[in-house]
């Protein structure tokens, strides 16, 4: 019995200290290496194939959902005290939690749709690699546990601020405090572990497109795109 408990502690160290650092090292080294050696693989690889009917119901909800949810996690990590202050009124807490859940469900719906399309559409399936399927598996797990935690272990926005944020900061300060996460339910711990796994796997996948989102698009002047030929003439000839 006591041996089992000791090994559980080792497991916690492995999952919440070794894994995160390993993940970040892999992430940094491989993204840089890949950018230097294989610059033009930095892409999401188009999967539209002149089809927007099904793709729309995957791509749009997924991206709006995941961007909002990720932004939420990031803000709660950055300014946990402000989140707690916002949550100090139950009605505001409920608004934040319901909003987060809405976007979580939206992410899940969108993701399941893209997954189904990728599987059932022959043309898309043919360009889907093993790495893509592994990524789909981890991401599905990540999103599903996220929604599960939001519903089953409420109120995540508050305890994220009090337990998860200090843990993440402790990692950043090179003084990992796993006491914050060790006692949490397994659904939450698996969500965290799968997040680190995603970070480690990230540079090997098409997810790298996130790093090269057309960032300048956000501030550059709008461009007018115009075909460089005269339609009327073409019609005559």
């Amino acid at each position: 019995m006591s041996e089992q408990i000791i090994s559980l502690e080792d497991l916690h160290v492995l999952l919440f200290v070794v894994l995160p650092y390993l993940a970040f090292v892999i992430f940094l080294l491989v993204t840089i290496q890949r950018y230097r050696r294989q610059t033009f693989t930095y892409s999401s690889l188009s999967s539209q194939f002149l089809e927007n009917k099904h793709h729309f119901w995957g791509m749009v909800p997924f991206h709006y959902g995941i961007l909002t949810v990720l932004f939420g996690h990031f803000v709660a990590f950055l300014i946990p005290g402000t989140i707690l202050a916002w949550n100090s009124s139950p009605i505001r807490l409920y608004i934040l939690e319901v909003t987060a859940l809405i976007f979580g469900i939206l992410t899940l719906i969108g993701f399941v749709n893209t997954m189904l399309r990728r599987y059932f559409d022959d043309r898309v399936r043919r360009v889907t690699t093993a790495a893509d399927w592994i990524l789909y598996g981890i991401l599905l797990f990540q999103i599903a546990t996220g929604v599960w935690v939001a519903i089953g272990h409420r109120w995540g926005s508050s305890w994220f601020a009090s337990n998860a944020a200090p843990y993440l900061w402790s990692l950043l300060k090179m003084d990992p405090q796993i006491a914050y996460v060790q006692p949490l339910p397994w659904a939450i711990k698996l969500h965290i572990v799968s997040a680190f796994t995603l970070i480690a796997f990230f540079p090997f996948t098409r997810l790298v497109h996130i790093l090269v989102v057309p960032n300048p698009y956000l501030w550059r002047k709008t461009q007018v795109v115009r075909w460089n030929w005269d339609r009327s003439k073409r019609r005559v000839s």
Partner: peptide, 9 residues
């Protein structure tokens, strides 16, 4: 809570 989430989505 779940209903609000589903309806909102």
């Amino acid at each position: 809570f779940v209903l609000l989430g589903v309806v909102g989505a």
